[in-house]
């Protein structure tokens, strides 16, 4: 559906996106994840033709965005980070303008307008000036604009930023609904959001794609680090004595100890379940187990690990210098 080939965008000396390549398959909801300033918006702006790439190309349904922009843009509905709304229009007028600009067949426009307004639930505000709408409604008008003409690909840049929790849930449900008929790409710096909505996740950091997989697989990548946390009613040395006789413990970490209760974190050897063994060992020694929990690595851990190890591989100080310079320029 979309093929991004060796995309590079340079602002002066600052690399916003460097040599980014990936493919987007049909009918999947993708989450573009990364810390602020990672190059998410830049990437989306290039895919939608709002920004030119320094190097590389984007193919949308086989059409190059630079060489056949009209054909390529017809396949995309885009909601930029800040919804591009004309404040002096009503949602109805605005959507009519976008339909005319997208050159949709005149006959179907009324039906299209009604169905999109119903989907995004803005029908009751259709005749109020956009200037007077709340942020949640504005966001929905922005999404409605992207949906017009029923494009195959919907690209949403940070669609839930600045909304209240109820609105966030509404927008997420809407996105999930859209995912049934469209290919959706959304960007976010909030993990739980991407985890909740997306089928596939791409993690971007400093303009590089550092991971691209399903949410489950990404979590499984760090599944080896599943740990077992337990609290026993004994002092530190007796707990240690009991655990010394249990097989399959790779690592042992005393968390805290307060005389008659001790918390320990155990790292089992890969693919071994030691829970039963640990229980029996403590039962044999007549020590009460107060608590035992498996701690699985969350996507958050994967994300932090991936985005933090990145600068170590690169020449970190130089990168830092460049982004500092960029910040100064911006100021």
């Amino acid at each position: 559906m979309i093929e991004v080939r060796h995309l590079t965008k340079r602002y002066g000396n600052h690399m916003a996106v460097s040599d980014l390549s990936f493919k987007i398959e049909k009918g999947v909801i993708y989450g573009l994840l990364g810390p602020n300033g990672a190059g998410k918006s830049t990437t989306m702006n290039i895919i939608t033709g709002c920004l030119g790439a320094t190097e590389g190309d984007v193919l949308i349904g086989g059409h190059s965005i630079t060489e056949e922009p009209k054909e390529a843009k017809r396949l995309i509905g885009y909601l930029p980070e800040q919804p591009p709304l004309y404040m002096d229009m009503t949602p109805k007028e605005y959507l009519r303008f976008v339909m005319a600009a997208k050159n949709l067949p005149v006959k179907g426009r009324d039906g299209e307008l009604d169905s999109v307004m119903e989907k995004t639930r803005i029908a009751e505000m259709q005749n109020n000036l956009i200037r007077n709408l709340s942020k949640g409604y504005r966001q929905r008008v922005g999404i409605a604009q992207a949906l017009l003409g029923n494009p195959e690909i919907i690209i949403l840049d940070e669609p839930t930023v600045g909304l209240d929790p109820a609105q966030i849930i509404e927008i997420r449900d809407l996105i999930k609904e859209l995912g049934r008929e469209h290919t959706v790409i959304l960007s976010s710096h909030i993990l739980s959001e991407v985890q909740a909505v997306c089928d596939a996740i791409m993690i971007i950091s400093k303009g590089h794609l550092i991971a691209s997989d399903t949410a489950e697989n990404l979590t499984a990548m760090l599944a080896g680090t599943t740990t077992l946390r337990l609290e026993a009613a004994a002092n530190e040395s007796s707990v240690r004595a009991v655990l010394d006789h249990v097989d399959g413990i790779e690592d042992l970490h005393m968390m805290q100890s307060s005389g008659d209760a001790t918390t320990v974190e155990l790292k089992p050897e890969e693919n071994t379940d030691i829970r039963a063994r640990v229980f029996h060992a403590f039962a044999k020694s007549d020590i009460a187990l107060l608590e035992m929990t498996s701690v699985r690595a969350s996507l958050e851990d994967v994300f932090l690990e991936l985005t933090q190890q990145e600068p170590l591989q690169e020449a970190a100080p130089q990168d830092q210098q460049e982004s500092d310079d960029k910040r100064k320029e911006d100021a």
Partner: peptide, 14 residues
């Protein structure tokens, strides 16, 4: 200023 130019850039019009 209002970033509506992004809409114009992303629409299939020259």
């Amino acid at each position: 200023k209002s970033k509506t130019d992004q809409l114009l850039y992303s629409l299939p019009i020259s």
